[in-house]
Simulated scan of single mutants.
Amino acid sequence: MTTHRLCRTLGSVVIAVAALAPSGCGTSAPSTRAADTVSPSSLLVHVDDLPTGWRSSSSPGTDYRVTVCGVDLEPQAPEAVTSVRFAQSALGPFLEEHVRVYDSGRTIEDVAEELRAALRSCSSYAARGSDPASPTAHFSVEPLTVAGAPEDSVAWRQRPDGTVPITSDLLLVPHGDAAVLLMSYAIRDTPDPAVLARAAAALPAVQ
């Protein structure tokens, strides 16, 4: 994903806060899939999996690629993708899920392992979109513990440097040949870690 697109996911929300308002009229972005891959939609969390008060929101889009603390979250192109977003109000908090299916499950396992190692010493990173005119966004970052998250997953909290106080909690879960990225964020408040835990618990078991 380009970082500008990931504004709806990994932090460029700082650049496009207006795009965060939920529409309440859809649950996921159109998915693309190859005939011989698992359907990414089968890994999506549903609004009924979340506590009372959450509702379906506008799609965050399906772009994804960004480098966090030197780790490329998508070193190879996916075979299939989809995404979904939920909100409690027009100003949040929000929960997004991005699902990427690859031709090899080992890819995402390696990414999660590398990111877990990087977060032990990384405290900040800078990201920029592919468009030369897109601004560079700077984030402080720290490891995060999500209760009940799969052992091979990796979680972190990030905050943008700047005037828009958007804190994001992220959980990257290897799931067979798929990568599941969950992100909980709020515009003014710190996200509740229990939201990621609830969403992770709703993921189906790896077959």
Rank of each mutant, 00 (worst) to 15 (best):
L43Q: 02
P51I: 00
Y185K: 13
P193N: 05
S134G: 12
E96M: 09
A194E: 12
Y102N: 02
V84K: 04
W54I: 05
V71E: 01
V141Q: 08
G70I: 02
A118H: 06
V164L: 14
P75Y: 00
G70Q: 07
H4V: 08
R106L: 11
A35I: 08
S59Y: 05
L95V: 09
V45F: 04
V17K: 15
S121Y: 08
L44W: 02
V14I: 12
S123T: 15
L43N: 04
P150W: 08
G162M: 13
S39H: 10
A149L: 06
S104W: 00
R65A: 09
I108W: 01
R85E: 08
V81N: 04
A29M: 05
P165Y: 01
H98G: 04
A19P: 00
L182Q: 13
C7I: 00
T167H: 07
R106Q: 14
A149T: 06
Q158I: 07
L172V: 11
E79Y: 03
A178Y: 01
H46Y: 06
P30I: 05
A202G: 11
L196F: 06
C122I: 03
V180R: 02
V38L: 12
A147W: 12
L73W: 00
R5F: 06
L182D: 05
L144V: 07
V173G: 00
G92P: 04
V81H: 03
S104K: 10
A205D: 12
R120A: 12
P22F: 07
L20F: 12
I15D: 15
P135M: 09
H98P: 03
L20A: 14
L43I: 10
D189S: 15
P150T: 04
R128S: 03
L6Y: 11
A80D: 14
A21E: 13
V101C: 05
P150L: 10
G92W: 11
R65V: 08
D131R: 14
L20P: 01
I166V: 15
T167S: 14
L170V: 15
P165S: 10
A133G: 08
A186P: 00
G92E: 09
L181C: 05
A202W: 04
S134F: 09
C69P: 05
V99A: 04
A112Q: 10
R100N: 13
A200H: 13
V164P: 01
A18K: 09
S59W: 12
S140L: 12
P93W: 00
V38N: 08
T145A: 13
